[in-house]
């Protein structure tokens, strides 16, 4: 038996969430005395594949064909299912990323497996079953899902499990499963990636601003603050609705849920819909000139003050700190 982990790459590089998934898989494997098999699909160099060994993979299956260079949901799912079967996987782990959210249910359905998506902790075993803690009710609760099927699928939330180095090294095997032509009925036409930007769902630090900024022309200082911190930028719903910032930056109930180590909210009052997307953040800093803003109730640190006064000073202070 084995623990199979599917690792996602971005333009041939593994990001932190991939190493988190491998580290998680290793911890699950250690619980049951199994080994971790990692599966990579796409054009990834051996040096990157070798890195997976450092985090706990004993074997890396490498699927690298022109046809599979970009993500094709059904075809990727078929390959993962094939790899799970041929490696006798008892647990399959994926990142709960945008692509992972589309893959995990397809893979689970094909394997007759139960799926826990949005896992935030290691599972605990109850006999043959696994119990997985997941987020529920948009940050207002957690649900413990018991998986009772023979094979189990877990989709791990980004930023929920610490990357850990293990004393393993991986052998790399080329893997070429056969795929049906009908699994290629979706065709990727274009990928537009803002390469200079840090991806919001995976970011360690998020700097987010709201209507208190008064207009899109004032985002320069938000971007500068994010830059100093190595943070991703985000915004509240009214801001993206007004077209000040793109919808992809909208954090909250109908936007993206994030769980960074540090979330800095500037000029955001903290409506319940916004809090739903940020409550899993480890540390929350709120900067708002209204001392009654509800956001202060869920904040760890707060400054009651005008963003236009506080943010430039904060940038200076952070730059000074970084130079120490």
């Amino acid at each position: 038996m084995s623990i199979l982990v599917y690792v996602e790459n971005t333009d041939g590089q593994f990001k932190k969430s991939a190493f988190e998934a491998v580290s998680y898989a290793k911890a699950v494997a250690d619980q049951s005395g199994n080994q971790v098999v990692a599966l990579s699909i796409g054009n990834v160099e051996d040096a990157q594949l070798t890195l997976l060994g450092k985090y706990g993979a004993s074997k890396v299956l490498n699927v690298n064909t022109e046809q599979l260079k970009s993500f094709v949901n059904q075809a990727y799912a078929a390959i993962i299912v094939d790899a799970a079967k041929s490696n006798d996987a008892s647990v399959l782990i994926l990142s709960n990323s945008f692509s992972g959210k589309g893959l995990a249910p397809r893979v689970a359905a094909k394997l007759n497996a139960a799926l826990a998506d949005g896992a935030i902790e290691l599972p605990s075993a109850t006999g043959e079953n696994l119990q997985v803690k997941t987020g529920a009710f948009s940050g207002k609760a957690f649900a413990f899902v018991e998986l009772t099927s023979t094979i189990k699928v877990i989709a791990l939330n980004p930023n929920s499990f610490e990357v850990k180095e293990a004393e393993t090294s991986a052998t790399i095997e080329n893997y070429s499963p056969s795929i049906d032509a009908e699994d290629f009925s979706t065709i990727v036409k274009d990928i537009i990636r803002a390469t200079d930007k840090i991806s919001l769902p995976e970011a360690d630090i998020v700097v987010s601003a709201g209507r208190g900024l008064k207009g899109p022309e004032n985002w320069g200082m938000i971007e500068e603050l994010a830059d100093v911190l190595g943070a991703a930028t985000a915004c509240s719903k009214p801001v993206s609705d007004a077209g000040w910032r793109p919808h992809s930056e909208h954090v909250g109930q109908t936007g993206i849920a994030v769980s960074p180590n540090l979330y800095i909210a500037i000029g955001i009052s903290g409506a319940i819909q916004h809090l739903a997307g940020v409550s899993a953040s480890k540390t929350i800093v709120v900067i708002n000139k209204d001392p009654e803003a509800p956001f202060f109730k869920v904040a760890d640190y707060g400054i009651v003050g005008d963003a236009f006064d506080v943010i430039p000073k904060l940038i200076v202070a952070l730059k000074a700190y970084k130079e120490l």
């Binding site: 413990f144 899902v145 998986l147 109730k297 869920v298 700190y321």
Partner: peptide, 30 residues
């Protein structure tokens, strides 16, 4: 049936907010 929810938990409430004076952003950084 392949899965079931066995229990729920509500998050630990965060402690009270630590307020920092607007004139002392260095304190926030530290």
């Amino acid at each position: 049936q392949l899965s079931r929810i066995v229990k729920f938990e509500t998050p630990e409430p965060r402690g009270a907010v630590t307020l920092v004076d607007a004139s002392d952003v260095e304190k926030l950084v530290s």
